[in-house]
Write a protein that binds this DNA or RNA. Structure first.
Lengths: 254, 254
DNA sequence: CGGGGATTTTTTGTCGACAATTAAAGGTTT
DNA sequence: AAACCTTTAATTGTCGACAAAAAATCCCCG
């Protein structure tokens, strides 16, 4: 827990280290500030630098980002709408902690959304888009070989996010982005570091099918990939009950 | 425009009449207040009592609902997040005005979501659920026969919302709810009063197929229904350009 | 040693105030 | 009559202050 060192009586301050080093930009529009703060938090959640249950007090965010409480509250509400963060009355915001009941529903929704997105990708993606996707896959594979867990977790998700972008449907893109963020939280919570979440070949096979115009094939590969991912979580879940308690500390959710 | 009567120099207040009569409840939890205000606004948008472009000043909402600005701002942000309302820097919130580019994307997303939801409905719905759906269809038909436009607009949407509920997937349900609200705004903006938006038979046919376990049939019927609805908007669109200017007043969007 | 209570501090929710921005009305000029 | 300017008032964004709730620590007692 990133609380300050105990100094005596009273409640110690909470300052999440993962967000350190956010220099405020001079003369920035409020909307840009808001977006910068939002993105900083989302990125660290996606990269698993901010773990589920981590406290995000307003005052800490104000200091770290050099902004007032009004803006911080706005960002936190926004993050809560996207289920990245949980807000609780009279208590500090925390990085969201998906429940076990959420997991199946999230994957169900994700399969539906990705199945919906793939035909649109096939309809809209250019050769340059596919080339860019393959570059992304290479970066992903490199990160996996370097065992750079946080980088790779971000990149693995980024592939799926990119599919949402390529659908050219802003609504589906946004919903998929939300679902993927939430799946990242699930992975961060229920799977120990070091385990493969998305294997390189799976993404490559989806892209192969798309590029060949085989939408049904891409949907099948992707569906299988997502089901594998979900099943992998279920398998690991039994073994990680003890490490889960470790991960959460005594009572991140008393 | 629901501005107060002109009294001389100065800017008149804006007080949307559609929201009148919101008595504040005594001793209500903040979260309940928030939800009450949110629901009141959403309902009136869905029933087309609050038209796209209608201004919703914070002070007016504070008075009408008997709450402070903090809560109002929170609700407005939430409504903006759901695309019911648009927030603009230094200007009052307005009921959202979908652009023409939005329309196609909305319907595309809606078709995808409803297609995803229908198999889940078929998997989960009980006989009681179908009976309830049919009761809803009867209410819808009654409202249509009474030419109760606002009631019927609400009920027509309610059918689709109910499908989202019956999917038992909270994420898909929420996304569909948002899309349907936004489609209501599209209808309110682009289609004159009195035109049928959802015909009774179409909903009935979807329910028939579902109850018979014919998911593909339900998807086909529903897809056709949504495509008809969209096409209907496009047809009417050419004829309503003048009434659109009427509807918006001189410059609801200067 | 463990539990409970008191104390201290942190943190959130809310309000009022103020300044900046915006919108509408009235008056003036072309 | 239309365009422009001035005046007036509404409205939003933000901050500081305060009270309530919550969390952590310390102390005391059994």
């Amino acid at each position: 827990m990133n609380a300050t060192a105990p100094k005596g009586r009273g409640r110690p301050k909470v300052r999440p280290q993962a967000l350190a080093g956010q220099a405020p930009a001079a003369r920035e529009k409020p909307a840009d500030k808001e977006q910068r703060i939002y993105a900083a938090i989302v990125d660290r959640v996606m990269e698993q630098r901010l773990k589920p249950g981590t406290r995000l007090p307003e005052a800490a965010l104000c200091e770290l980002f050099g902004v007032g409480r009004t803006l911080v509250q706005k960002v936190l509400q926004r993050l809560a709408h996207d289920h990245i963060v949980e807000l609780r009355p009279n208590r500090s915001a925390i990085v969201a902690m998906p429940s076990r009941e959420d997991v199946g529903k999230l994957f169900e929704a994700r399969r539906a959304l990705e199945a919906a997105v793939l035909p649109l990708v096939a309809a809209h993606a250019s050769r340059a888009d596919y080339a860019s996707l393959r570059r992304q896959l290479r970066k992903e594979r490199d990160a996996m070989h370097r065992y750079a867990q946080t980088e790779w977790a971000g990149l693995a998700s980024a592939f799926h996010l990119r599919l949402g972008e390529l659908s050219r449907n802003p609504m589906l893109h946004r919903y998929l982005a939300e679902i993927i963020s939430r799946c990242c939280l699930v992975v961060a919570l229920f799977q120990p570091p070091g385990n493969a979440t998305c294997e390189h070949d799976e993404h490559g096979r989806v892209v192969d099918c798309l590029e060949a115009g085989d939408v049904a094939g891409a949907q099948r590969e992707n569906d299988r990939h997502l089901r594998d991912l979900e099943a992998h979580l279920q398998l690991v879940e039994e073994d990680t009950d003890l490490s889960l308690a470790d991960m959460l500390g005594l009572s991140a959710r008393s």
